[in-house]
Design a protein around this nucleic acid. Structure first.
Lengths: 312, 312
DNA sequence: TAATTACTATAAATTTTATTTATCATTTAT
DNA sequence: ATAAATGATAAATAAAATTTATAGTAATTA
């Protein structure tokens, strides 16, 4: 049994397909066929049920895959241990960021981080929360920045900051006269929402105490960006809610439409999340320090009520 | 990095010598030199300090060795998982047994066990507790039968039985008239002890509330077997203490010299112990079942006070 | 239903890697 | 000072992984 064989098993298990797995592991398909057969011969057990299309893991194959993940993780950790001992912070680091955080947060910390840790090769991907979880489970992400709490048993969370929700209320809206708005004032049916898949959308739905879909009877406009939502709002199609940091780059004119919430302000918790295995924890620590340090200056502390980013 | 390389590192770390490690791993010495160098090159770190004689681990080398142990253990576990799923109980199983348990317990369970699990190839070694601990730490024992509690953080214990101490008191001894003896009656200075290294000796010392060596001022006879102790006792050189099961094969005449303790009877706890990693746990379970089942018939339950097998 | 597609397995050739044999260089012990 | 012990190195060999080419086998499509 070799670590390489175990990696091949993991690749085939993930893609349920020898050919695709071969491409991902940068070898040819016969390599996988032969090495996996060899392992199966040694263990005297079938890992894959090749009669099923697409290919499936056998019962015992599932257990082997779990254990193989352990082993590959623990093997990767050796380089980690060496790096840590040397005080070396570098290498490839795959970071996922949710779309509603990406445009505001990334410019704030990216330059500072790459300056401080020039040897880290960041591979940043914009992904929504579900994709982040999936990729992290498959070992394709070292960490991610997402709204929390997610309460997943294989993921650890470390809060970076709490970002208040801010109301964007156009002059024509019934709430415009109110200086500060209250959660009770909200009506899910006149709030413009991001399109499905964004956890911020789910957060707003939770905030309004609505269940997913309860508002769907009435016609709703939805979009993938806050920029569009604000424009639609300006057109009088309803109010919307923005994460605090998204209000920074509104035009002077538009800022007049911002209505803050009374305390405790509803807010989302934005965290750096990473697998419990804690691989590359040094880089995760470094990233945490840089980001939380930078954001500390941007968001004043206030009494905050965390809104869950998940709907059931 | 390969599992083989990690095994080579572990072997060299253990023997502090490339040549010996090569013999133990059944390869030639240059194989170890080259493979370990290759790993060191890949990790860009020295695992061994070759300037020291004998060779030593570097600081980082120690951490790598720990992690390598994990990985090799976890890799071995794969075969375990397969066996378990198949309900297969077999393969090599290395069992250590302490000398004061070996002659009485082994004949009781060996035949029953090998009959029930013919595919298990038992490799039994008589070892005292210290050697058991050492070998288990080095991964050379799958389990052992020893007096407990040992309170070691890398070892798990499962009690098999509680074996009372029995006094062997010759006619000439001051305690002979007493039918049942009491712990308070004992005097470490007129008890014949096993030689150093036996945990039963330490148990007796603990029982008498003596610190190791406090009795050494007076002349003591010591031996490596209870058989000898009994003979010396018969010669009038003092009383001795025997584990209950050792009294079975005394001669009729000698059995008259046995004096049981008042309850709570001092006793030793005999357990099957095994590394926390729980490799080959199926075989450990099987062994536990067989042994505890057999002993249950041999030792009647009584109120017992466990004597620690360890002296400080 | 024949042809095509999408797969995985197999065979043979090739490349890479691990291991051994033989030998050297250094250090330790006598 | 000499012998013994020990690890490194070089070259040769053995073993293994990988690739290329191709066959086999389902499922899918024309």
């Amino acid at each position: 049994m070799t670590i390489t064989q175990l990696k091949y098993v993991l690749a085939v298990a993930e893609h349920q397909n020898f050919t695709k797995a071969a491409q991902k592991t940068f070898v040819t398909q016969p390599t996988l066929s032969m090495q996996i057969q060899k392992l199966e011969d040694q263990l005297e057990v079938l890992i894959f049920d090749r009669s099923k299309k697409p290919i499936e893991l056998t019962e015992i194959g599932k257990k082997i895959v779990n254990q193989a993940k352990n082993i590959v993780d623990e093997a990767n950790r050796i380089q980690d241990i060496v790096d840590q001992q040397k005080g070396f912070i570098g290498g490839e680091f795959r970071l996922g960021i949710i779309p509603t955080v990406m445009p505001t947060l990334l410019p704030m910390f990216l330059k500072a981080f790459t300056n401080k840790y020039p040897k880290v090769h960041l591979k940043i991907e914009e992904l929504n929360t579900d994709d982040i979880i999936q990729k992290m489970a498959d070992g394709h992400l070292d960490a991610a920045i997402a709204a929390t709490p997610l309460k997943l048993d294989f993921i650890k969370e470390r809060a970076l900051y709490y970002e208040p929700f801010v109301g964007y209320v156009p002059e024509t809206h019934r709430l415009f006269p109110k200086k500060a708005i209250d959660v009770k004032d909200l009506n899910i049916n006149d709030i413009l929402l991001l399109e499905d898949g964004h956890c911020f959308r789910d957060g707003v739905i939770n905030l309004c105490n609505a269940s997913k879909g309860s508002y769907e009877d009435s016609f709703q406009l939805e979009s993938g960006s806050f920029e569009t939502l604000v424009k639609l709002s300006d057109e009088g199609l309803g109010m919307t809610l923005l994460p605090y940091m998204h209000t920074f780059d509104l035009q002077k004119e538009q800022k007049k439409n911002l209505h803050h919430f009374n305390e405790p302000t509803p807010a989302r918790e934005v965290s750096i999340i990473y697998p419990k295995s804690e691989l590359k924890i040094q880089i995760i620590d470094a990233l945490y320090q840089v980001v939380s340090g930078i954001v500390r200056g941007a968001i004043a502390f206030q009494d905050v009520k965390i809104i869950s980013p998940i709907t059931k």
